[in-house]
Amino acid sequence: MNVMAKARQLTAQELSAGYDRRTILEDVSLEVPAGKITAIVGGNACGKSTLLRTLARILQPKGGSVLLDGKAVHQMPSRAVAQVMGLLPQSPIAPEGITVSDLVGRGRHPHQGLFSRWSAADDRAVEAALEATGTRAFAERELDTLSGGQRQRVWIAMALAQETDVLLLDEPTTFLDVAHQIEVLDLLVDMNLARGTTVVMVLHDLNLAVRYADHLVALADGRIHSEGAPEAVLTEDMVRAVFGLECRIQRDPISGGPSMVPIGRHKSQLA
């Protein structure tokens, strides 16, 4: 990746959001560290995706605002936002029969005008995205013929081809087996290190979030329970409050950081 990302200030100020009359997110203020990887964790229906979709300008906030470099994103033109901030939604739809390179090329849309033709810059961005995600070998194949992990890498390649400074991902590892989860997360770290892209992702695997994030945000009932360095945020109290789960925190022998071991009613040696 030759194009370096600019450091962007993405902040949420007293943000409230939801669907129809239901408010899911309440009074969330958040400063996303520029050039770092932020992971948002929390129980089902705690507002993780709502927060991400509001940050990405897809959902209109009920109160508060989202600022990108000091400007309210919901007042900016969609195209201008899309040139700076990308989002990989939870379940994007692939048009039937589309090839990998064609799909990745769709990521160039915000950089193309109504009448402008495909440019050399578009070519470079697509090729770099294929390279970075290791999907170059199947650039010519139809998406339907790939495995789940490969397909997810292609979607990430599409988001990379958009060449945004900020990339938001909604559960990029769902439906993937554990090997592919690690593969995708490693890829995001590669990209973050190589380009300095600011990454914000919703993850439901707490241990992977702790291992891969520089900054961890724990949401409970639409509010931020705690945020900060993963070592500081991951505590037995936090897991109890956010997930309603008893656990032990131990050292992850691989990363050296903390890791959570859940306690259930069965299969426990504790007295």
Binding site: A56, I58, P92, R106, A159
Partner: peptide, 23 residues
Amino acid sequence: AAVSRDLDILRLGDDAAQALGVR
């Protein structure tokens, strides 16, 4: 014809399309 490119992007789903700058 003027909206055909945006229509093509809309095939990726509403969220993906909005993230690519399509209303």
